[in-house]
Design a protein around this nucleic acid. Structure first.
Lengths: 208, 208
DNA sequence: TATCCTTTGTAACCTTTGTTACTGCGTAAG
DNA sequence: CTTACGCAGTAACAAAGGTTACAAAGGATA
């Protein structure tokens, strides 16, 4: 069995792990690299082995919004969804960290769904997780003020990167939360005054 | 075959339609009646035959937000999702119109998923549709101003009810868009002045 | 070192949305 | 009929967030 499949070995039956090893292509993506663009056709389904990927939505003016992160053991339900329907991607995917993934040709999806119970469970579980993430995103933008969203953003970020130093500019954060740089600077300064963070050039030290 | 299953007859193979007729319970729900409350356990999966159901999210203060509507041929992906994980409902479901549905015991889900290709496709298709609806909801609250959201709300509503008279108070609308009555009154009046709608007591006449 | 570019801080102002308060109208219940 | 209540209109104000403008600091590069 492929060494890379460790994180999936408890999820999938052996025959399936074999098949994945055979047809799956291991791919390395550097931090910041784009994996998927809006409007692009989906030809393979990614299984994350290590690293993290951020999923972004864009409006008609080109403004962005961070939807959620994918981590080890995750797959992209949007991709799943698009594979099935042969539709174009609705989202943009960018590597948040250096990331390794296994790409599965979409032809296998239908086959494995019929053949392997563990695969069906995985797919359903993925859809479930993603729907819950989307609900969480909706909660944030609908029910939270910008200062609370910013705090949540910072805490999500350090959880994903496992590093309490965030290497982003205020402008970077403003894009992902769909607001302006001045607003983020203002709120970050307020957080610093409350002792929650410490501001540096190009990075933010999170103290909680 | 059950007469009620007409809307599904082109989707499912005959053997499956037979099974649905056997184990499915037809249920009638009156407009305004609650089908599912947040925190409630899910014991059956609904297939909509006629009518419409609105799906709502609630925050910690009890404030609501309309997520989307379900119509004939739809099922609730949230329910699907919760069935699998045996988790509690994350949403509230209320009949928007008088509605008929077939309730499927969740035990059948696993079985049918393995047995029927058409069932698998239906489930995947449902997840896909729901994810797209959620994206659309996110677009609205993240990228649109309240006046644009209101216009979209009105147009969604008349599409669902197939009636250009909306029987809601301003307060009703305010709840579903998670804002205040005064704001809705203000924006509705502006829409009336622009000739888009005509306001009456307890109802709104949509002119587009 | 001198220069330039990026990033950050901050003030002033504007727009949108939310809140409070009060009015009057329509309708249902008595 | 009349009382009471729910609904809608509107003004005045408050708060949050977005915009513009400019200054200063930190790095990179010539």
């Amino acid at each position: 069995m492929n060494e890379n499949l460790k994180s999936y070995s408890h999820l999938f039956e052996n025959a399936l792990l074999e098949e994945i090893s055979e047809v799956g292509l291991v791919k390395h993506v550097a931090e910041g690299e784009k994996l998927m663009e809006i409007g692009q056709y989906v030809t393979a389904m990614p299984l994350l082995i290590s690293g993290a990927i951020k999923i972004l939505r864009e409006d008609k003016d080109g403004d962005e919004l961070l939807l959620y992160f994918l981590e080890k053991g995750d797959t992209c339900a949007m991709t799943l969804s698009c594979c099935m329907g042969q539709t174009k991607s609705e989202i943009r995917a960018i590597a948040e960290l250096d990331t390794e993934l296994i790409m599965i040709p979409i032809q296998k999806m239908e086959e494995w769904t019929a053949k392997y119970k563990s695969w069906r469970n995985f797919v359903f579980e993925s859809y479930h997780t993603r729907l819950m993430e989307m609900l969480d995103t909706i909660d944030s933008i609908a029910f939270l003020n910008m200062d609370e969203r910013l705090l949540k953003y910072l805490s999500d970020k350090i959880k994903i990167t496992k590093d309490n130093i965030i290497n982003s500019t205020h402008q970077d954060i403003a894009y992902e939360l769909h607001t302006s740089r001045v607003v983020i600077s203002r709120l970050l300064k307020a957080l610093e005054n409350r002792g929650k963070i410490k501001l540096h050039r190009n990075k933010i030290e999170v103290l909680f």
